[in-house]
């Protein structure tokens, strides 16, 4: 029950997260107090989760290292190699497998001859950076609003509730598309550098702006139940300030569901970047992202299936490994979730 509907075709409540269902049916179950070590021990026993952890770690390492490799000149996503292309066939790469060689292990792209592996690695870095930033901001907004709503109650709570209703009622995909012209213009006027920066920032902003409500709901529900517990009462009795209670007492109890949600948001946002790129929103060529590298390969389904398939496979690998990691984390943190 962990797949967030990430392919942008859904509109409305994103309900594939247990906690929210639990809230709907009125039962909230928190395993927040379970020690980290216990969870880790459980996690380690699950082979699939461990494999997912290894793969995601590899992706993370690649994401961190590829800007360095680019600076060192090991990977080069930008330099054209038109000499490797055959002018007579529409500048299609010469040789086997789309121009595969030791210096270009996955070949070069048609038209310009840029190295495919470099573009994929650097593109994955940018896609993961976008997804990471958006996921962090989403979780931050959701957590802050959720804690405030849950703890303050009254008018603030219902105001946040209405804001959640409002945000969820917008057809997110359409808004992501339709706002791009408007918001990108505005941001450029405000001095954000045009091109990749503003387009990347746009994706981060709108994904977060439409992604936070489920987290806010989840956190609010958790806070409501935690609020009733003794340790919070104790803190209030001892005269702790409201801010202190929010951050010192409640937040540590929420990290488990947040971690799970965060892990599941990452693949959702990687897919979202690709889908938006297909629809023409987001970072554009020459700066590579997984989305626009895939977009540039779609035409080659018949003539170069490998070139067509590989970017999609990388996206799929990221989506699967992060989803399995999220599953594993949740199972480990909440052993009762039936699986």
């Amino acid at each position: 029950m962990t797949l967030t509907a990430s392919n942008l075709e859904s509109h409305g409540d994103d309900h594939f997260v247990d906690a929210e269902e639990d809230e709907r049916s009125g039962k909230v179950d928190v395993e927040g107090r379970s020690p980290l070590r216990l969870a880790w021990a459980r996690f380690r026993k699950d082979k699939l989760s461990m494999a997912a952890l290894v793969v995601t770690t590899l992706f993370a390492l690649m994401a961190i290292s590829s800007p360095i490799l680019k600076r060192l000149g090991v990977i080069d996503p930008y330099t054209p190699h038109q000499d490797l292309l055959d002018y007579a066939t529409g500048n299609y790469p010469k040789g086997f497998g789309g121009g595969m060689s030791w210096s270009h292990p996955l070949g070069v792209e048609p038209g310009l001859g840029r190295d495919v592996l470099s573009r994929l690695m650097y593109g994955a870095t940018l896609s993961l950076t976008i997804a990471l930033s958006a996921a962090l901001i989403t979780v931050a907004i959701g957590t802050i609003l959720g804690i405030i709503a849950g703890f303050t109650g009254g008018i603030v709570d219902s105001a946040v509730g209405r804001l959640i209703d409002l945000t969820l009622s917008f057809p997110a995909t359409l808004m992501l598309l339709a706002l791009s012209g408007v918001v990108v213009d505005r941001m450029t006027d405000l001095g954000v550098p045009a091109g990749a920066t503003v387009n990347g920032l746009y994706i981060v902003i709108v994904l977060s702006a439409f992604g936070w409500p489920p987290i806010a709901r989840l956190i609010r529900g958790q806070v409501l139940s935690i609020r009733e517990r003794e340790f919070v009462d104790a803190a209030i009795l001892m005269g702790a300030s409201r801010r202190r209670i929010y951050f010192k007492e409640i937040l540590p109890n929420l990290w488990a569901p947040l971690l799970v949600y965060f892990t599941l948001l990452m693949p959702a946002y990687v897919s979202a970047e690709a889908a938006l790129s297909y629809l023409g929103v987001g970072i554009k060529n020459p700066t590579p992202t997984l989305g626009n590298v895939l977009g540039g390969a779609l035409e080659y389904a018949y003539t170069d299936f490998f070139f067509f398939f590989v970017p999609a496979a990388v996206i799929a690998a990221i989506v699967i490994s992060f989803n399995l990691l999220g599953d594993g984390a949740r199972d480990a943190l909440d052993p009762k979730a039936g699986r």
Binding site: L112, R114, A194, N285
Partner: peptide, 27 residues
């Protein structure tokens, strides 16, 4: 995609000749 590639190709030679080209692709 081909348009974007074409301007990336122009940039490569301009840069070689002593320019520093920033590509500004707009809708």
């Amino acid at each position: 995609d081909a348009t974007d590639k074409a301007f990336a190709a122009l940039k490569a030679t301009y840069d070689e000749a002593g320019f520093d080209v920033t590509l500004d692709g707009l809708d």
